[in-house]
Design a protein around this nucleic acid. Structure first.
Lengths: 247, 247
DNA sequence: CGCGCTCTTGACTAGGGTCAAGTGCAGTGG
DNA sequence: CCACTGCACTTGACCCTAGTCAAGAGCGCG
């Protein structure tokens, strides 16, 4: 019941607001669904692959990612979490988590109070719809990611990924039209894109030398966003950012 | 209320039964959630990428798949649907469908009656949980698919995919321990696996000549399932087939 | 000061894509 | 009944994208 006075909306509220305008009661329920704020340092494994009875979180500040590790030791990053994203919500009902989650920076999270989820469905179905929408949207990103890895070459894949991240950051009020902070190392980016860090490095150089984008010192800066976007056919309709559906 | 007498359980009921034992009332609700049986011929596009106000279906008999098409005309198959699977449930809340669905064989489906979904959440939360579990499991498969394409070579990817399909078929009572019917053409399999049909053909030959599996005339037959499975480190724990959780 | 990590670049290799040609059907129409 | 077309599958030859191996630079940290 921390209804002191809703200050600037947090990232999740802001994102859900893209889907529909939340009322007073719904905002209260959204708050109730989350446990106290918790701070976790960078590099901490929050949930591990095979874990039983794992929790889900709302990522309020900082970055995290989910990944799977293969027997040969290589890993594939599934998904990057930025402020306003859920961590592990979609695998909550699985007996064992199918993936691991690590923090990439120091983060602020709130645990999802699963026991109240059913309440939310009963009392605030619009909110529940918004939450399911957010999960669906996350899933659409994973799907697009799969398509990228399956059918785009290294350059297009890299560009697409960085454009998408930019769009996601802007959606939650981080970063500007042509740049954003991105704390990923090259080897992580490579693990996300299904290639080697060495090759990623070459691709980044190519993007830089073609005056398309620069990724340096933790900042992605688009030099020619337009050109880049239609060079690779970037279409973010799958992010479903249509502005509030008022019902 | 088609409660004549529950005959042999259909594929979806059977699959949900893997997660939890459904009671009389829950089975009735599950039935109510589905519209009348409908038959659709092979090769029909049920939902197309970008479609507005698309529906979701339960696939009762036959095969279907979802895919995305890129600007250059190539396509990536996201997911194969076998009996008992949902089609398009996870993108129901998106304003426009982010992917297309085609039938691969003649199929029998029942439309999901979305207006009753909220009823289900209220009246039969255990059933609702089972449905969300099924969706989570589908997503876990997409994630594993992504990992495959990102980090496994063509041989392992192909073997993994065919092993997974076999496990899914068995789960819904289709196919035996060492073989199952698979109506996919090589070019479709290739589109699913993120490679060219030509290369897939070479890989299939290799699998055949190594006495691991044969895929011919619409039937996948494992010659040495064991060897194949641990050669590629196949671990189907992500399919979460643990037997009923009785609550 | 040295260790470890990220980033960078070059040289070489190989997995998988491209191109091309050919086989074996199943369907269709003369 | 047979040509003709189209599709799924096969195989070979060649090439290119991206992986592997190796070495070095810059930097934060104990």
């Amino acid at each position: 019941m921390s209804s002191h006075k809703p200050a600037a909306p947090d990232a999740l509220t802001q994102k859900l607001g893209t889907f529909l305008a939340l009322g007073r009661e719904e905002l209260a329920m959204l708050d109730e669904l989350q446990g106290p704020r918790t701070y976790i340092p960078a590099g901490k494994e929050v949930v591990y692959q095979g874990q039983h009875g794992h929790a889900a979180y709302v990522l309020r500040e900082g970055w995290a990612c989910s990944y799977k590790r293969l027997i040969d030791g290589s890993r594939q990053i599934i998904d990057i979490g930025v402020p306003g994203d859920f961590l592990g919500l979609r695998s909550l009902l699985l007996r064992t988590s199918d993936q691991s989650f690590v923090t990439l920076t120091d983060v602020e999270v709130r645990r999802v109070v699963t026991s109240k989820l059913w309440d939310a469905f009963r009392k605030t179905p619009r909110l529940a719809g918004a939450l399911l929408w957010a999960v669906s949207r996350d899933e659409a990103m994973v799907v697009e990611h799969l398509v990228s890895i399956g059918r785009r070459d290294a350059l297009a894949r890299t560009a697409h990924f960085l454009l998408e991240l930019g769009a996601r950051m802007r959606l939650v009020g981080r970063g500007s039209h042509d740049s954003y902070e991105c704390p990923l190392s090259q080897s992580m980016l490579a693990d996300a894109l299904g290639m080697t860090a060495i090759h990623l490095n070459r691709v980044l150089r190519q993007l830089r030398e073609s005056n398309l984008l620069v990724f340096r010192e933790g900042v992605v800066r688009f030099i020619d966003r337009e050109k880049l976007a239609d060079m690779i056919g970037f279409d973010l309709s799958y992010l479903d950012q249509g502005g509030p559906v008022l019902d």
